[in-house]
């Protein structure tokens, strides 16, 4: 896509200006928030990415309530049990949707079409999510978390990071779980989503010729687009 003369990178005097002109050129609003998608997106296999994202929103919302109320609430009261379960089952759905999303993208080789960074940020997000899940399991303050943390401690020692990352240290794991991991994950997911918008939703392998012909995300042909509702 060729930029207009006033959006030329060289004309920007500072790095902020360079970033702005680059974003204006590569991510205009109609590309960032498109109303239409290619026809091939109308398939259930394309639903699991947004399913994962929805589960993450529920995880953060329920986790925020748990953080404010604390274990003396969520271990004892009925409402606390509800939010504790909501957090737990949102995590189960998050991983379930994410694995199906991963299977779908792996088998359609979703790194095609200059989408390697989209694929890599997704994979790193999966690894960070596993770390978030582990630290979540060990901060439950119940028998389950005691068992898991002392099993995991052996694992951490076996790979040589036990002295630095001690899963039996409740304070360390609490902070990692409620601050560090969500921060990294949200940034990764944000970058992942922007890259999806930047490169477009990956087409099925047999639709490669459509993409090569420029008929992917922003095609205006009615036969190749469907309304997003």
């Amino acid at each position: 896509m060729s930029g207009t003369p006033e959006l030329d990178d060289e004309s920007a005097p500072s790095w902020i200006g360079k970033v702005r002109t680059r974003l204006e050129r590569d991510l205009p609003y109609d590309k960032l928030l498109p109303e239409t998608q290619p026809a091939y997106v109308a398939s259930w296999i394309y639903v699991f990415g947004v399913g994962t994202l929805s589960a993450l929103v529920m995880i953060i919302a329920s986790g925020t309530v748990l953080a404010f109320e604390g274990p003396s609430w969520y271990h004892i009261s009925n409402v606390g049990h509800f939010f504790n379960s909501l957090h737990y089952w949102s995590v189960q759905l998050f991983f379930l949707f994410m694995v199906v999303h991963l299977l779908g993208k792996f088998w359609m080789a979703a790194w095609r079409g200059n989408r390697a960074r989209t694929w890599i940020t997704g994979m790193v997000a999966l690894i960070v999510s596993i770390g978030a899940a582990l630290t979540g399991y060990v901060i439950q303050t119940n028998f389950d978390s005691q068992w898991i943390s002392f099993e995991a401690k052996d694992g951490m020692n076996a790979v040589g990071i036990g002295a630095w990352f001690n899963v039996a240290n409740l304070g360390q794991n609490l902070l990692v779980h409620v601050f560090l991991m969500p921060l990294i994950l949200v940034v990764l997911v944000a970058v992942h989503l922007v890259l999806v918008r930047l490169r477009g939703v990956v087409p099925p392998i047999d639709a490669a010729e459509v993409e090569a012909a420029g008929g992917a995300v922003h095609s205006s042909a009615p036969s190749e687009t469907t309304e997003v509702r």
Binding site: S43, W44, I45, V47, F48, L96, V99, V100, L103, G104
Partner: peptide, 8 residues
């Protein structure tokens, strides 16, 4: 997960 993938 496998069943969901196939169904999708």
């Amino acid at each position: 997960m496998i069943a969901l993938f196939v169904l999708a």
